[in-house]
């Protein structure tokens, strides 16, 4: 198996506001979001980062997509370092999270062309890919409708399409089905499987067990910023359901306190 992604000892801390420090009853103002995290992902697989809210999943994905820099550690994607070669890494990945928005003023058609140009996609390829992707997600009928006037589901499908204009090798997806209606969620998960079949690598974060069971080839369980278990679904679960196994791990980590 070809290793596409390798994260080595990623660490990230944030400074808490005084108010937040009181809420969390923390001793110091530094909060460790990601603590020495290492894992690998291989070509043609869906890798899931599973964990509760605040475990550090999103922070990890943001470091992988070069939006934020690790305090220490590094990750290589397709051979490029997220610390040393961020622009090259960005050329290889498609990153999708609800934080990334599209400008209301423009149409899907304009945005597809705009982001294709920023990704240096050949105009002919852009035209072909746009036609194909718009048809696949039913955006074709709304190609000239301003984003502001699209339905929420259509906006999310468009965001997905825009993040993939350059046909990236690695697709990084933060909570892919969060906030989606059942139909759109299904379209998205189906497409993730299509991407895997096409030999792409998908890294996703989620707190939904069923999603992991249905989609992921391998999974990493993150609790308090640390990778507590990582491997194929069978290796991690050891005969249990992922849900039961997760709570077992959680108890081990927290000592049954919570």
């Amino acid at each position: 198996m070809e290793e596409i992604l390798q994260a080595n000892g990623l660490c990230k801390t944030f400074t808490l506001s005084r108010k937040q420090q009181r809420i969390e009853r923390a001793q110091t103002r530094r909060k460790v979001a990601v603590d020495n995290l290492s894992f690998s992902a291989y070509k043609g697989e869906i890798f899931g980062l599973l964990g509760p809210n605040g475990a550090g999943k999103t922070t990890t994905l943001r470091m992988l997509s070069t939006l934020i820099k690790p305090d220490s550690g590094d990750a290589t994607l397709c051979g490029y370092s997220v610390v040393g070669q961020p622009a090259e890494v960005r050329g290889q990945i498609g990153f999708l999270t609800s934080e990334l928005k599209l400008e209301d003023f423009f149409t899907p058609n304009y945005l597809f062309d705009f982001f294709s140009r920023l990704h240096r996609v050949d105009p002919d390829v852009t035209a072909r890919r746009k036609e194909q992707m718009f048809a696949r997600f039913g955006i074709d009928r709304f190609a000239e409708v301003k984003v502001a006037n699209l339905s929420t589901g259509m906006k999310q499908k468009l965001s997905l399409v825009i993040s993939l204009v350059h046909d990236p090798e690695v697709v990084i997806f933060d909570e892919p089905t969060n906030g989606l209606d059942v139909l759109t969620a299904r379209t998205v998960t189906d497409y993730l499987q299509e991407l895997r079949s096409a030999g792409k690598t998908v890294i996703l974060s989620t707190h939904i067990f069923s999603l992991v069971e249905r989609l992921c080839d391998r999974v990493g369980v993150i609790i308090d910023g640390r990778m507590t278990a990582c491997g194929t679904l069978d290796e991690v679960c050891g005969g249990l359901s992922i849900e039961d196994r997760f709570f077992e791990i959680y108890k081990e980590q927290k000592g049954g306190a919570e």
């Binding site: 622009a87 990334l100 928005k101 599209l102 209301d104």
Partner: peptide
């Protein structure tokens, strides 16, 4: 405005310098 609307982050994940 782009920062507030979250559209600048979309630009920042492209390979553009």
């Amino acid at each position: 405005g782009e920062k507030e609307r979250g559209t600048i982050a979309t630009l920042l994940v492209t390979p553009m310098r």
